[in-house]
Design a binder for these strands. Sequence first.
DNA 1: GGGCTCATGTAAGTGGTTACATGATTAT
DNA 2: ATAATCATGTAACCACTTACATGAGCCC
Lengths: 171, 171
Amino acid sequence: MELGKTAYVILGMLRMGKRTGYDIKSLVDVSTRFFWAASYGQIYPELKRLEEAGLIAGEAEATGGRRRRAYSLTKKGEAALRGWLTSGGPLHIELRHEGVLRLFFSDELSKRERRALVRAVRAEHERLRDELAAIRPAASDTTAGAPLEVLEFGIAYQDFVIDWCSRLEHS
Amino acid sequence: MELGKTAYVILGMLRMGKRTGYDIKSLVDVSTRFFWAASYGQIYPELKRLEEAGLIAGEAEATGGRRRRAYSLTKKGEAALRGWLTSGGPLHIELRHEGVLRLFFSDELSKRERRALVRAVRAEHERLRDELAAIRPAASDTTAGAPLEVLEFGIAYQDFVIDWCSRLEHS
DNA sequence: GGGCTCATGTAAGTGGTTACATGATTAT
DNA sequence: ATAATCATGTAACCACTTACATGAGCCC
């Protein structure tokens, strides 16, 4: 009964309280998405599997007409989450960065072209940093601890890449 | 005839000279792999497709018994590579980092457990940095320009994450 | 009435990994 | 001799994305 990493994203989100698939997706989009994204196409089927496996419990909330199914963590689910968090297993770390890839092959370009490419990479990371910075105010109100620390790290990481780009541009 | 990014990895590697699929894989494993990995299962089929499309030309080199097929870039392939390098299209940037993900959900852990997790993340990035550092001597002999700059960036990036982990550990 | 948000799903496709099969050549 | 490296491939599988379909409730 090996779980995929995205299953743990769901378990982790449910630990904070009862949530629908829609809720989870919304949360992911303003938090883990920057280092672990998830789409509806993953979330809904995974919720079914996790319920079948007894790690979460769904409850239909008939609020009038609109159907919604909110899930909560079971004991078993909590244990699974904890087990994953504390297991010493290898950490899946994967980066796919087309900007750096292009830069790697950029020796055949002219200086102008190369500089344009670096600028494009920088612009992308500035966009990312702005997105993260926009989340911060709301996050520092409602959240604290680890999620906020990770958010700060995300911003610092974007700044690090932006700095590297700036140095490349002026050399 | 939209090409996947991995196709451009192949084109980029072939621009440096005639190469077999095996050669390309070996090169990827000591260079782009850290920001764009590729496996045989992708490379060999992609080589066939690129040849059919006329972007590369394969030549069977009968060196006695061992069969090998070395490819080189065609004019069309060079143009495609250049086009990709200079196109302003959106840059695919994706990170999947299980370490940061665990940290994000680490609030329920004890201080000891959390620290152990941070240490594990740091260890992983130290391993990565060592791998990159091991490549450097050979790279700075044979290579120069962009690939070397990207390698230096990779090392600096690992150091950045390692530093963040260290700060987390001692707080 | 119209547009936005809440809400749930699925089908088709993509991009990629893993594991295996095969065999020649070279180094120890 | 035998282990490592060179070399080519494929089949099965996996994780994930995209696009679509559907519909209720809420605000202007």
